[in-house]
Design a protein around this nucleic acid. Structure first.
Lengths: 131, 131
DNA sequence: ATTATAACAATAATAATTACTATTATCGAA
DNA sequence: TTCGATAATAGTAATTATTATTGTTATAAT
């Protein structure tokens, strides 16, 4: 049985307002303003719980710490190799690629994880003159 | 300037013979047979180096340690959610999805990382009777 | 209000990886 | 073929990210 906690609510609210996919550490720093005694462990525990409940998403980049997304709806991400930003992409779910994968494969494909990388608008060379 | 080392050669050879995408720890255990004094740090350093040189691939699953693939040619992977196996998929490169991502996006998409998950043949319910 | 227990803060522990340091191996040049 | 510069090593310590433990507090059902 899951009981309400103000800390968890605050963590969820924080993520709902952010679109930059913060790390657990960043969440911690923010929630600390309202709950000066909150511990990083509580943040991690609640992030895991919220993810299990399907209320947020965890993003593993392969470099650096995991990041979290308050938008639980399925969508894809872009990693800027220059500045490290993680951005949301406006594109439809590519469900067809699951069939593609399964066609030559003996098991059951239930889904996929995909992200794109490259340079974000701010890091593109031509953009440099605009700053 | 990169100098030859027998340890690195052995690490590369080991990966070339394996198709199960071992972890650094597994590589370490194997190379230890020929180089009893090799340290885990050496394994990690060489795996990173070989990856930078484009001779092997690093696979970050998001759960557990990174895994390594002696096959540097681009291909996709499948993660079995049941037994944790990481398998190679025989499917063509989905380069078209990069355009798809870029169409609604302001930056430059240079590539993507994608993997599939589900149940491998050995873990499918109907397969259980065959064992 | 009482009570069971989920969640907490504080802290310790773990897992995976990277960094440091003194020694050894590689390799180009003398 | 030795010499010297330095890349790589082994051994170890440190760091980073995360999970577990423990005693206390908050929540919510009775």
């Amino acid at each position: 049985m899951i009981k309400y906690s103000r800390q968890r609510e605050r963590i969820k609210d924080f993520l709902a307002d952010r679109y930059d996919h913060p790390t657990a550490e960043t969440v911690y720093m923010s929630v600390k303003k309202d709950f000066p005694n909150i511990s990083l462990g509580t943040v991690y525990r609640n992030l895991s719980l919220l993810e299990e409940l399907g209320e947020i998403q965890k993003i593993s980049t392969g470099i650096g710490p995991d990041r979290f997304d308050g938008n639980a709806a399925p969508h894809y991400h872009f990693f800027c190799t220059e500045c490290g930003a993680v951005l949301d992409l406006k594109m439809e779910s590519m469900e067809h690629i699951d069939q593609l994968a399964e066609s030559q494969f003996d098991g059951e494909v239930q889904g996929h994880v995909a992200y794109f990388f490259g340079k974000c608008a701010n890091c593109l060379p031509e953009k440099k003159f605009k700053n």
